[in-house]
């Protein structure tokens, strides 16, 4: 008995030694920030308080009230909603189109196409922004192409109307690859017998797509929707590198607002804003998982 007991104690010691480096860094750089972000959002913590955190005062829900009183924050929530509402369906539709095309039984160049469509995902947003700013200029590549078909394109990034659509387009380009891979895996799991049966019954290609493929793909589509909405709700990089939230706050997202508050030294406000966003992300994921379960 005592032999196994000491062996167990020995194993526990070894296990904690194995876990130690991780636990130390996890504690310092994840748990402490996570715990302090909650506390911070109920205080008036400012950048100047980093050296003397004892000078910080609790303000209760003050930060949250101020936040919703700030028209720029409300604007940033609306902008994020706009981005999510149009960005998610667009990205999913394009990804599904690409995945379906790649899954139609073509064999040659499949890998090359897949690599091509996925490349935007792995490339640095900073580098990609340089060339996109160039393409979206008033006399840039996009507007000259539109000119061929008689459309007079706007000054995308300096128009309060068109800056957001331009960023949505760019985000769809950057993220379609991830969803394409996920959808492709889902499509390959649709049993070919189902398609055969539908074909025998005289169903057209379109009917088979809408009546067989899409229903079978529902769990995969929902998984893709959850993944992408968690990312899209934190919409930040595109406006940061392309428009700095402008023009006139037209592309100021909630995550961007958080970052600007951090820049102003308003750490408490930034923490509160990030929690509002966190709640939105958690709520949306919950709704989507509910949908996923109830439809099954």
């Amino acid at each position: 008995m005592s032999a196994t007991g000491s062996r167990r104690r020995g194993q526990a010691l070894v296990a904690w030694l194995f876990a130690l480096p991780f636990v130390l860094m996890f504690g310092f750089f994840m748990l402490v920030p996570l715990a302090s972000s909650i506390l911070m959002s109920f205080t008036d913590f400012r950048g100047s308080d980093v050296r003397t955190p004892t000078a910080v005062e609790f303000v209760g829900l003050g930060q949250y009230l101020d936040l919703f009183g700030d028209p720029r924050f409300r604007r940033s929530l609306l902008n994020t909603g706009y981005f999510v509402l149009f960005g998610i369906p667009l990205t999913m539709a394009v990804a599904l189109l690409l995945a379906t095309a790649l899954n139609t039984g073509i064999t040659r160049f499949r890998t090359a196409f897949r690599v091509g469509f996925y490349t935007p995902v792995v490339t640095s947003i900073v580098a990609v922004a340089v060339v996109w700013r160039f393409i979206l200029q008033p006399d840039g590549l996009l507007n000259r192409t539109l000119g061929w078909v008689g459309i007079d394109g706007p000054d995308w990034l300096h128009s309060t109307t068109w800056a957001m659509p331009a960023l949505i387009l760019m985000a769809a380009w950057r993220n379609m690859g991830t969803l394409m891979i996920i959808f492709l895996a889902g499509l390959q799991n649709v049993p070919s017998e189902l398609h055969e049966a539908a074909r025998v019954d005289g169903a057209t290609t379109w009917q088979r797509f809408f009546r067989v493929t899409l229903p079978m793909l529902r769990p995969t589509l929902l998984l893709g929707a959850v993944l992408i909405s968690v990312g899209y709700l934190q919409f930040f990089e595109e406006p940061f590198v392309m428009t700095q939230g402008g023009p006139l706050d037209a592309t100021l997202s909630a995550a961007y607002y958080t970052f600007t508050q951090f820049g102003f030294g308003e750490y408490g406000t930034a923490a509160a804003a990030s929690y509002v966003l966190f709640v939105a992300i958690a709520a949306l994921s919950l709704v989507q998982f509910r949908l996923l379960r109830s439809e099954d």
Binding site: P33, L34, S36, M40, Q234, T258, A270, A271, S274, F278
Partner: peptide, 25 residues
């Protein structure tokens, strides 16, 4: 330990960014 790890897996980066900077500072 495992539960804590799974919880942090769901926390978006924007939430911990500012306090992480404070820790590092």
């Amino acid at each position: 330990l495992f539960t804590l790890i799974m919880v942090t897996l769901m926390v978006p980066g924007v939430v911990t960014f500012v306090p992480l900077f404070v820790v590092v500072a």
